[in-house]
Design a protein around this nucleic acid. Structure first.
Lengths: 233, 233
DNA sequence: AGGTTTCGATAAACAGTGTTTATTAAAGTG
DNA sequence: CACTTTAATAAACACTGTTTATCGAAACCT
């Protein structure tokens, strides 16, 4: 551990490393993420970086945490930016922002939700809490729609498979997160559905099939809201 | 190019390489996919493999093609195994088989639909046709359900966003694939939705949230069928 | 201020990797 | 047999992440 006064410089250089790492990744993909390459860019030898990150994996973990945080902030920001709109519109904008962040930061998104670095797997005790942060916004909005009666039409998503309901309920109680089981369930369902579209898009499988992915995603978000029981606009 | 008589031996050893590669990958993940490691296992030096695969990427591409083919065969097999059941049940079983293959061959699935090998991206002119092969089974079943009036309830998935409909229609005509636009659209929608669940599961993000992924997926398949307009069982 | 500790950075080396080159041995064909 | 083609090799190249021992400089404490 560095001494208290040096801590500032230490953290500053740590930030620079992450900055360069992110930049290199954006340019050359996850393949370009090399200790030596980063060191070169910083006019420093490779072993020097070990003072800041004990191992290569720790660097990646730091980037993953940054990524998750960025996604969570984008989602939260989207809600704040549309806080004056009706809940349904807020939810739509939040879901659009979710994909938009993925499109704008494809590498980060892959690193978060996939594992493009061979042999590396993000420690879930670190990732799970941050995933939930962005997730909470979505579920919160759904819960709001349910409570205010803006989702009243009964749909398939009102019937939760029993084993799933139990786990979801436990999670809600454990995290002390005041939403209904149904809201949580709908959140997970929507999350999964949209996640599939985004992943397919990111790896180039969806574009050739549906052409304009932007329009397609927009349509799917709207369909999701309707499928949940919200009235079409 | 090897001579005509040697061709047999050449192809045989090529197969052995792929076999070992697949095995190594299953054991040590995509990280364990190394030319030298494969060569060691085959009691051969690394450069020898270059007679069979010009480069590392070509080996991977061969594995990807094998993977896609395996998935397509699993899907087709699932339909054949349930050909005596009603169309709706056939579709359910096919969709369950789709995930089951992913669970049984997680590495292959990641390699197919993601890109866990840094710097490598599967050439779409090779992958797209094989993706469609498995996809065709699903769309075919949906089309059958639509034509036989087993999907008659109007749902959101009957209304296709115009830009998407155009592209889908072009694909159908170009590939001379005799299904309706609606069947194609529902196929894509379902594919995307379930793909999200599978990807989240494979990377360990879904398990902690829903507990029993098996039951959850089953429920989602059923929900999907209902959401498409098929009556609940 | 002086002595000691601590931190940052380094060069050198290790064990790997994918890939290229030149060379050798072994088959198949006329 | 001579000749060509193929397979495999050893050696080397340019990398990679990581460890070790070493050195200078700054920070702390007395």
């Amino acid at each position: 551990m560095p001494r208290s006064r040096d801590n500032q410089q230490h953290q500053a250089f740590r930030e620079r490393i992450l900055e360069v790492a992110r930049q290199q990744m954006a340019q050359h993909g996850t393949a370009g993420l090399g200790l030596r390459a980063i060191a070169r860019e910083l006019d420093v030898t490779a072993p020097a970086l070990y003072r800041y990150f004990p191992t290569h994996d720790d660097l990646i973990t730091a980037l993953v945490v940054e990524g998750f945080t960025g996604l969570a902030e984008a989602v939260e920001g989207a809600q704040q930016a549309n806080i004056h709109l009706p809940l349904r519109d807020q939810l739509r904008e939040v879901l659009l922002a979710y994909r938009q962040w993925a499109v704008d930061h494809p590498i980060d998104f892959q690193m978060i939700y996939g594992s493009p670095i061979p042999g590396y797997h993000a420690p879930s005790e670190i990732t799970v809490p941050i995933v939930i942060r962005g997730f909470a916004v979505i579920v919160g909005l759904i819960d709001g729609l349910l409570q205010s009666g803006q989702i009243q039409r009964e749909t398939v998503y009102h019937h939760i498979p029993e084993p799933t309901r139990q786990i979801l309920h436990e999670r809600i109680e454990r995290d002390n997160y005041p939403v209904s089981d149904t809201a949580m369930y709908m959140g997970v369902v929507g999350w999964g559905q949209l996640h599939g579209i985004i992943m397919l898009e990111l790896f180039g499988h969806l574009g050739p099939v549906v052409g304009n992915v932007d329009a397609y995603y927009r349509g799917q978000v709207e369909s999701l809201l309707v499928a949940m029981g919200s009235d079409p606009p």
